[in-house]
């Protein structure tokens, strides 16, 4: 690097550039908050859904599954599981029966723990998964298999 470009010039560019792009990021975050209500399905954020989110978290579901593509890659995507398993025609029943039937115990197969959820907790879990399935994700995943 030429001697005209000094360390203090480099330092000033660093501070100036960082501050500029951080402020730009904050502006985009503000804009993002403005745009979210039209996409994030918050109208359906009921107390039941919120309780379901807490069950999702305290059973560490993300430790095996992905939700909208984020999480672990050991077990299926659950962002669209409500729709994959029948939607309003049987999705809820399928998910509840599935959770209750775990673990399958099939030798050599991946196993999901038994969480002993009550009927109320199962309904909350389903409500949460239904709410997530109705978020506008720009058509991700590419197909129903997740």
């Amino acid at each position: 690097m030429s001697s005209a470009f000094t360390t203090s010039a480099a330092r000033n560019i660093f501070y100036g550039g960082t501050v500029f792009f951080f402020l730009l990021f904050l502006a985009l975050t503000y804009q993002n908050e403005k745009a979210l209500p039209a996409r994030d399905n918050r109208a359906n954020l009921t107390p039941q859904v919120i309780a379901g989110k807490k069950i999702w978290e305290t059973r560490n579901c993300i430790g095996c599954h992905t939700l909208l593509g984020e999480g672990a890659y050991f077990a299926p995507e659950l962002g669209n599981v409500y729709k994959r398993r029948g939607g309003d025609k049987g999705g809820a029943e399928f998910i509840k029966a599935w959770i209750k039937a775990q673990p399958t115990g099939a030798p050599g197969r991946r196993q999901m723990p038994q969480f002993n959820l009550t009927e109320q907790e199962l309904d909350e879990m389903v409500a949460f998964l239904k709410y997530v399935s109705e978020i506008n994700t720009s058509n991700w995943p590419p197909n129903i298999e997740g």
């Binding site: 690097m1 360390t7 951080f22 990021f25 996409r39 984020e70 995943p141």
Partner: peptide
């Protein structure tokens, strides 16, 4: 030290807004 400043400048001017590559499919605007 001059190199260090150049590298971290490039890091932050690409990386801060680069956060956006996580915001494609999680319900955030397009």
């Amino acid at each position: 030290e001059k190199w260090l400043y150049v590298i971290i400048t490039l890091t932050l001017i690409t990386g801060i807004i680069g956060t956006g590559h996580h915001y494609y499919w999680i319900g955030t605007p397009e």
